[in-house]
């Protein structure tokens, strides 16, 4: 199991992301919603630490808190910093806690053939790279991990590519230039907005409401 890394609740939003070479955890389920990623009853904290413990809580543990043996996070042969999910990953609630839980557990990158909008935005804001690949390539990744649970994936943000190390198969992914620049440098939007406050003030005075 990947070791949970707790991040400090400081304004240094996240570490820089350039390249990531890692084994991956497969979760070939479609429409994984944020209520599954982190159930609402665990949203009661007033800081952002420790959510990793409850990542996929109800899929991961029985009602009596014993681990469910058949859930992938409880299977020691799978580990790594990349989570590979099915189509339409992260639908539902806007809770950023879902992204915090994934980050806090130790993932830095989520791969899917399709992401829900808010989840994608939240991930980028906190330093998780969502990598959208074609359904065919997603299937290849699942097959590669099935064949060898220690199969590595390599994500290169600069080049915008993801590859299956063993076979060398690779695909490119989209990310807008601004977000890419932020992730590669560990910058965040709030710093940017703080720096343009005068423009905002100017704009505000013209609002009718």
């Amino acid at each position: 199991m990947p070791k949970a890394v707790s991040r400090k609740p400081t304004y240094m939003a996240y570490d820089k992301f350039t390249t990531l070479k890692s084994t991956a955890v497969p979760l070939p389920i479609e429409n994984v919603d944020t209520d599954q990623i982190i159930p609402a009853r665990f949203l009661k904290a007033t800081t952002r630490e420790g959510f990793g413990d409850n990542l996929f809580r109800d899929w991961r543990y029985n009602g009596d808190d014993t681990p469910k043996a058949d859930f992938v996070l409880n299977n020691p042969i799978y580990s790594g910093k990349i989570l590979v999910g099915g189509h339409n990953f992260g639908s539902g609630s806007s809770r950023e806690h879902a992204a915090w839980a994934i980050y806090d557990y130790g993932f830095r990158c989520v791969v899917s053939s399709f992401f829900a909008d808010i989840f994608k935005g939240n991930s980028l804001n906190i330093g998780i790279l969502p990598v959208q690949v074609s359904p065919e390539f997603l299937n290849k990744i699942f097959l590669a991990i099935e064949a060898d649970p220690k199969a590595e994936l390599e994500v290169n943000l600069e080049q915008q590519t993801i590859s299956i190390v063993a076979t060398g198969e690779s695909e490119s992914f989209d990310i807008n230039g601004y977000k890419k620049h932020n992730m590669m440098n560990g910058f965040d939007d709030i710093d940017y907005l703080q720096a343009m406050k005068e423009d905002i003030q100017q704009f505000e005075t013209q609002r009718i409401y």
């Binding site: 952002r48 950023e96 808010i118 935005g121 804001n125 906190i126 709030i190 907005l193």
Partner: peptide, 10 residues
Amino acid sequence: FGIGTSEVEM
């Protein structure tokens, strides 16, 4: 529309 907590801060 709905936003995440980082955006609430923004």
